[in-house]
């Protein structure tokens, strides 16, 4: 199982902070992004600009995932 954690506006948009997804061998963060955009179309436009962290470590590109990993999506905060 992969636990997807959504933050800030993405959590508000999806109406939840945590989503579970079935883990498969060879899966990467890119697969999680694709799956999330399909399941939650309202998040699709926010996913490309969100920062992705796997187990609280930043994941810059397609990161391989292990069963039980937590994948967080954090939309950057812009104002100032």
């Amino acid at each position: 199982m992969i636990t997807i954690k959504l933050f800030a506006a993405m959590a508000e948009e999806a109406g939840k902070e945590t989503i579970e997804m079935t883990w498969q061998e060879g899966m990467t963060t890119e697969d999680v992004k694709r799956w999330l955009a399909e399941q939650y179309p309202s998040l699709a436009s926010r996913i490309p600009a969100a920062m992705v962290a796997v187990n609280q470590e930043f994941a810059a590109f397609a990161n391989p995932l292990q069963d039980g990993d937590e994948v967080a999506f954090i939309p950057p905060v812009s104002g100032g």
Partner: peptide
């Protein structure tokens, strides 16, 4: 960190 400049979002 951020592959694309975010558009929209909260200000």
């Amino acid at each position: 960190l951020i592959p694309e400049p975010p558009s929209g979002g909260e200000t």
